Each structure stands twice: as structure tokens, then as C-alpha cells.
Amino acid sequence: MPVALLALTAGAFGIGTTEFVLMGLLTQVAADLRVSIAAAGLLISGYALGVAVGAPVLTIATRRLPRKTVLLALMAIFTLGNLACALAPTYGWLMAARVVTALAHGTFFGVGAVVATGLVPAERRASAIAIMFTGLTAATVLGVPAGAWLGLQFGWRASFWAVTLIGVLSLAVLAAFVPHSRPETPAPLGDELAVLVRPQVLLGLAMTVVGYAGVFVVFTYVQPLLTQVTGLSDGAVSAVLLLFGGGMAVGNLLGGKLADRDPMRAVLGTLAALTAVLASMPFAIGTPLTAIVFFGVLGVASFATVAPLQVRVLEKASGAGQNLASSLNIAAFNLGNAIGAWLGGMTIAHGPGLGALGWVAALVTLAGLGVAVWSRRLDRRPCRLDARLST
């Protein structure tokens, strides 16, 4: 395995930790900043929207720079943003700092995914992406539970100080091991933007947004679900997050293997499985044992979708727009995160409440599966699609 691929994984670990760490600390943040649980959940949506905006803007702005330079600059933004989170005196300051931190996220994973696929033979592209995303799953296995424990012991700000240190270390690893590359002469901007009018690319982005949103309808509110519905203690939440992260690691590698064989079949199968798991939540979280099993299985199902969805978009965006499409799909995941967190908050504040989150989540992901089925049908009749576009 190329050492540079492990360096990308280290960067992904740092970014993944800061994305998810608040989910184990929503109650503490809400109490300290004197806001509601639903308002604290919007800090997840704010981060995700920052990713959605930053991914295309920074990808286009940095298109003439060497990829290593881009990755290092993005990690520096990430590190400074987390420092601002640790020092945030108010809810508004914390929201702004989260958004600034998020600007680096999408382009890092988008550019990193392209770099990763260039480090291995063509038949192992999906597995290379999955290995890089292992940093994200490792963040959930190690970083998020550790951050939740730190937050419970020393206050939620301690988690962001720890993530700032992770950012400094990740920056050093990337500088040491990612190979230098000469600045590329990019394709004309119009050629890159042309990817945005390809129907299958747009459908790929749509299935990512809608299909993945269901995960965050539930996962954003994992702490109040486990403490208020299941009846677990705050201290037990870290253990459940650890199990969820372990499931993500398994699902991530499984999704990479499936996508290496047939990306579109992997998309359909993993989204169908995720819908079924989410639909089981109302029945599973009533007792501690079944709730713990549910979140472990949810970890597997949620991250098994990632590599197939990413490879699908890269496959349909081959050519000049691949960098932009890759970053846009990372933005699409995070737009789904934002929508899911918002829908979950609305369900809690104005709807049937915490216990119904699974039903809402399953319906959202089922809609994403419907988009995927539509895209598969278009694959099977390209001539008719081309004729339609030419008229």
C-alpha cells in the first residue's frame, strides 16, 4: 500500500473527528450556550452547509495549484477553524467557526479521492477511495468517542483543543509523505463546468444527497436518543459511538469491495439495506441491548454506501470535470447531512418526536434509492437519452 495513501487517510481522520465530535456532546453544548437541542443540532447542519459551499468554490479556485499544496492549505484552514471553535464565546461564534472549518472538508476529500485513485491500478480505484475514507471511519471509532469522553470530563471545548492538535499532526504527515507534483495545466473552466449538465452526474449527486440524508436524521441526535428513549447514561454514549464507528469501518471496506465489482449494483444494494436498517429503528431502540446492536448495524449500512456513491459519480464524470465532480459529491454527502439534521430537528421540535426519527430517515433514504433506480434505467437506454438531449 502506498505510504501517500496512508497520509491521506491521516488527513481524513482529522477532518472526520471534527465533523462528528459534536454528536456525542449536543446536550452539553446546548446547556453551556443556553440553546435548545434542536438549535445545537443545527451546528451539524451549519458544518455540512459549509462543506457544500466550500467544495465547488475552493475546487475551482485551486484548480491550477499542485494537489499537495492544495491539501496542505486545506488542512491549515481546518486546524485554525478548530482553534476558533475551542475559543468560541457564543453560539453564533461557534456556528461561524464551524462553517469556516467546513470550507476545507469537501475539497480535501474530493482532491484526495482523485490523488488516491492515481496511486493504484485502475481496477483498485474504489478500494483506494475506501482506504482513504478509513480515516473517516477511524475518526468515528477512535476520535469521536474519545472526544465525547474528553467533553464529558473536561468540558466540550477540550474536544476541539484535541482536534486542533490532530490537525497539526495531520498537516505534518501530509507534508512528509504526499508526493510533490507539478502544477497541472487545467482544462478550460467551461469544460470542467460542463460536467454539471451531464444527467447521470446530476443523478449521482442527487442519490448521494437524498440517500445519505436519512443517516443524519438519526445519527445527529444519537445522544438524546440513547439517553432519553433507550435510557442509557451519558457515559454509555461513547461506547455506542465506538461500536458505530467499528461498524462504519466494516461497511466502508465492504462498500469498496462491492463497488470494485459493479458500482451501480453496489449503490442499489447498499441503499436498499440502509433503508431497511433505518426503518427498524423504532423497534430497536426500546431496550439497551437492541439499541446497541442497531447502532452497530447502522454503522455498517451507512458507510457501505460511501465508496459506491463516490465511484459512481467519478465514473460518470470522467475527463476534465472529474476533480470538480469528486468534490461536489463530497459536498452532496454533507448537504444530505445538513438536510438530515434539519429534518431530525423539525421532527423533534414540531413533529412526533425522537421516537419517530427512524421512520422519517427510512423514507428519505428510500427516495434516494428511487433516484438510483431511475439512474440505472437511463444506463440501459443511452440512445433514447441522447436523442432526448439533442432535441
Rank of each mutant, 00 (worst) to 15 (best):
V3D: 00
F13G: 09
I15T: 08
G24K: 07
S36N: 06
A39P: 00
G46P: 00
A48L: 01
A55S: 14
P56N: 06
V57I: 15
L58Y: 06
L58A: 10
A61N: 06
P66F: 06
K68E: 00
V70P: 08
A73H: 10
I77D: 02
A88L: 01
P89E: 02
P89G: 09
G92T: 01
A96F: 03
V99R: 03
S127Q: 14
A148H: 11
A148L: 05
W161Q: 04
P183M: 09
T185D: 10
A187V: 11
A187S: 15
P188F: 12
L193W: 09
A194H: 12
V197L: 07
R198D: 11
T208D: 08
V210I: 14
F219S: 02
T220L: 11
V222C: 11
Q223A: 15
Q223Y: 05
S238G: 10
A239I: 05
L243E: 03
G245M: 10
V250Y: 09
G255Y: 06
G255A: 11
G255M: 04
L268N: 12
M281G: 09
G286P: 04
P288K: 10
A291V: 03
A291S: 12
V293Q: 01
A304Y: 05
L309I: 04
E315C: 07
K316T: 13
S326I: 06
I330D: 03
G351H: 08
P352Y: 00
V371A: 14
L378I: 12
R381F: 02
D386W: 06
